[in-house]
Design a protein around this nucleic acid. Sequence first.
DNA 1: CTTCGGCATTAGAAAACCTAACTCTCAAAC
DNA 2: GTTTGAGAGTTAGGTTTTCTAATGCCGAAG
Lengths: 290, 290
Amino acid sequence: MPKKVTRQGLPPLDWLKVFEAAGRHGSFTAAAEEFGATQAAVSQRIRNLESWLGRQLFIRSARGVSLTVDGESYLPLVHDSLRALEQGTENLFGHSVRELRIAAQPSHLEMLLLPRLTVFSENYPDMRIVTETVPKRQDFEAADRALHIRYGRGVWDRREGVLLANEVLQPMTAPEHAKAWRSLPAIELRGERPGWSEWARVTGEGEPEMGPVSVDSMGHALRAARLGIGVVLGSRALASSLLQTGQLECVAAPELATIDGYWMTWPASLGKSKRQAEVLASLTAALQNL
Amino acid sequence: MPKKVTRQGLPPLDWLKVFEAAGRHGSFTAAAEEFGATQAAVSQRIRNLESWLGRQLFIRSARGVSLTVDGESYLPLVHDSLRALEQGTENLFGHSVRELRIAAQPSHLEMLLLPRLTVFSENYPDMRIVTETVPKRQDFEAADRALHIRYGRGVWDRREGVLLANEVLQPMTAPEHAKAWRSLPAIELRGERPGWSEWARVTGEGEPEMGPVSVDSMGHALRAARLGIGVVLGSRALASSLLQTGQLECVAAPELATIDGYWMTWPASLGKSKRQAEVLASLTAALQNL
DNA sequence: CTTCGGCATTAGAAAACCTAACTCTCAAAC
DNA sequence: GTTTGAGAGTTAGGTTTTCTAATGCCGAAG
């Protein structure tokens, strides 16, 4: 009637991870820190293991713990076995485990991702971020196993996703022209975003004089504005880091909110394990941070 | 903010046990049986592992599963590592893990334990039972790490225990004399148990004629009765297997219940782990079985 | 003889896990 | 071409395990 025979002769292996760490450090507290858990958790797991084996592995004293003879004999075996597993796992799956592929248009990579990446990297120092530049919309399909950062309404097949920020457009210029922006020529941005005339219509403002410059990407538009070429109807989200560093400035004029936004999406198969979910959550948090 | 970093680069190891079994069998169902769990449990753990690693390990088809290239590469590593751990654990701790030391008086070992041991051994085929004969009461203290089977009222220091059976005394003879037992001489049993006079007092029966034989252990008394030497005030519990095989027979006379009983006890440190608790429960069940 | 670092212990909360019941798919048998 | 059956996937919900937070305890160092 023995019900949960895991495998004859092997204790629950996760206890061994803890034993190994505790033995290596000679301290339950240190081991607990290594795992990001509490000292009590380590204490209990060790006790379980000792109980399972029917022998003490540690000698407890007020100043810390030290291994018993049994523990001393057991540690190398456990250490080596775990090391072998870790090493082999790393060799075979290391790439997929510690690599995050992110596909996006070049300007999104530059203006949304890169400025916020350091926050994430501090939390996950040895996670590699691999970007894949997507020149055109339809090229996203080729990168269907990667994370996507893209502009739209948040409906994509077979993908989960979160909204990073809604698109909010507002006139922006180089700081030195912010006061007298009305005298600047407007920069035209072609594409799916509402333009100056829509802005004028919705806000009731007068439409500014169009200048000679017309670009087809928000990245170029913002750069042009930064150079003092004119006033641009810029994206709050994309301009965020330029605004924060004072390279651009919002002028005193109403904004135009849209229903579109910047989304991060990933294949539904991702994020199922706790580890991945945490990584995703951390990245999301970093990117949503304004 | 990564909270539960177990150990960078190692998946939860218990998933690997399942992977190894599934890979070995080429079947989730078979693996589930090996663990005494359901197929769904295996399916989920494998999925978790695959998700953690970011790669598929099995190819599912309606007829079963087979390893992918990744799985094929991973299996030997996992197999060997687990094998090494299992082997080493067995070498170091095998004795304490698969050995059950049972201390008791010789007659208890013979009449209580041995007849019921096969039931237990069927459930735990590779558990070694090591008996330690205890000639005298006080010798139990020397075997304080072993299980004890002993007669008394169930109060022992630092030990947990369960009552196997209360002591119930009843006149018994060899089967051929059971009818005419009144004409047989009574066998005297010296010791802590109530004797014939107590039996006569409590039940109101006439006290039988005492014969010439007087013994100091229940084992001897029962053996004497079996040989036709006389009628004995026998212990139901100890005589149980003799009664079942027809070597002894209870006569038609009232029984005498006592408040003493046969107890199994163990050091409080034992039975803390699930595995041990199950083993103990199984042994207890076997011994309580009449 | 007090303090302080480190472990044990506990109850209760949180997470992980398992099972039961169901579905889906394919192959083999009819 | 249907039927059947084995085996895997999927869920929701209950159960077990594990973790945390709080507290107690011990002994070494001041």
